[in-house]
Nucleic acid binder design. Structure first.
Lengths: 227, 227
DNA sequence: CCAAAAGTGTTCTGACTACACCCATGC
DNA sequence: GCATGGGTGTAGTCAGAACACTTTTGG
């Protein structure tokens, strides 16, 4: 008797994607400006309804591709939020559509992204540590994504998706510092990255402006590692 | 332009709950026998559709209560699975209903549970390490739950939900050993539990059969700790 | 007096932290 | 020759792992 309850309207199912990148020393989030109610004119995470016959993962990948032109990057399901409508008391009533939102997070190289152009409101990168009030409960979703990213940084290779195939240790360290939002010791950082087997020295070196040549490294694996 | 796609049938949304307990030295999972297609006569996780206006968390708590009579225990969202139909090639076609399943896991004290009675097929506890082939992708869901539980055991108080308010260290250790599926050193275990501040000595002692009196302990907090 | 579980300390190792100087290069 | 970033080693601390014997009690 697996409880066949009175049948009722299925809720809408949306995916939303927290698309993160690191530019210079900053963690950034991709947001779009809403043109429809509810939360019209609020910044929001990119997202949309599941298309027919589409899996959740594919829907998330599609949204990511739509917004950035990027695919084959780190993309992980985060959490499923129960109601699209929450936060922002005034608008909550208008927003009382029934639905659930499956949140994902993605990590992209800033330089590979081509944002959609034209249209009244451009999507844009926002400082992950100084977001405005977003639509729905999107602030909570971003917080959640950042927390998850931080904890995975420690023991996985997630960062592969934020850097080109070869990179210097300083570049990698900058990425870590931007995400963790604090400084790291150069020597300890190198030791750890190498001894955990996350990265390895790649062939060459590269000149970094007016300095001496820097050893290049690469990730041992450039796919999501299951944890 | 948040992509208003061609509108399509919303998928069904179900919650499923991995209800875990520890009996003696064994980790057990609560399963029910399906009486309907697809996967008729297969064992499956308890679950059902979201009722009108219900949040996901409430739906999960309701399923838990229906099956066990238990509430106010550890209950956490696990993962959202994209398709109800998967695994079991032969039946997959018949099972091609479109839907997503939001999985939760719950930890209950075996002694507090009152299983539903009557009805053709009783729900029952199954050895978590020797499950039959379950309906849908439920085997994967259980695996996922056990992995998550194991990792949380290390640094949270999740186990509070598996023991009465007061317990001996041996009892706690048995619970840990059942879940982790390996033995632990008594001295190291005590030291860690106490130094992490997960448990504290409670007032009294208790006689454990034909032995000397054992110190009683309690959890410092008996609510889910956010991580 | 024996069986059963409770209780207790020390040593070793590996990981993480903190910390300061020299080197190669471009300008 | 100097500014810039690249590269390197050591000492201290802490947490986890391994490990064996004594005590209390009931039967």
């Amino acid at each position: 008797m697996p409880a066949t309850r009175t049948i009722n309207k299925p809720p809408l199912v949306a995916v939303v994607v927290v698309i993160l990148t690191v530019v210079d020393d900053d963690l950034r989030v991709l947001l779009i400006k809403r043109s429809a109610q509810p939360f019209r004119d609020y910044w929001a995470l990119p997202g949309g309804l599941l298309a027919d016959g589409e899996t959740l993962d594919r829907a998330a990948a599609r949204k990511l591709l739509d917004e950035t032109g990027v695919q084959d990057v780190y993309l992980e399901q985060l959490y499923t939020f129960g109601e699209l409508s929450r936060a922002d008391g005034k608008r909550a009533a208008a927003a009382a559509k029934r639905g659930i939102a499956v949140a994902y997070f993605a990590l992209v190289q800033h330089r590979q992204v081509r944002l959609r152009e034209g249209g009244e409101w451009q999507p844009g990168w926002h400082d992950g540590y100084a977001l405005p009030a977003l639509a729905f409960d999107n602030n909570a979703v971003v917080d959640y994504a950042v927390r998850r990213l931080r904890s995975k940084l420690d023991y996985t290779n997630v960062a592969y998706s934020l850097l080109p195939r070869q990179f210097t240790l300083s570049e990698l360290q900058q990425v870590y510092e931007a995400i963790l939002d604090h400084e790291l010791d150069k020597r300890n950082f190198r030791r750890r990255m190498l001894s955990l087997g996350i990265i390895k020295a790649a062939g060459g070196t590269r000149m970094e402006g007016a300095h001496r040549p820097a050893q290049l490294y690469s990730f041992v694996k450039r796919e999501p590692v299951v944890v």
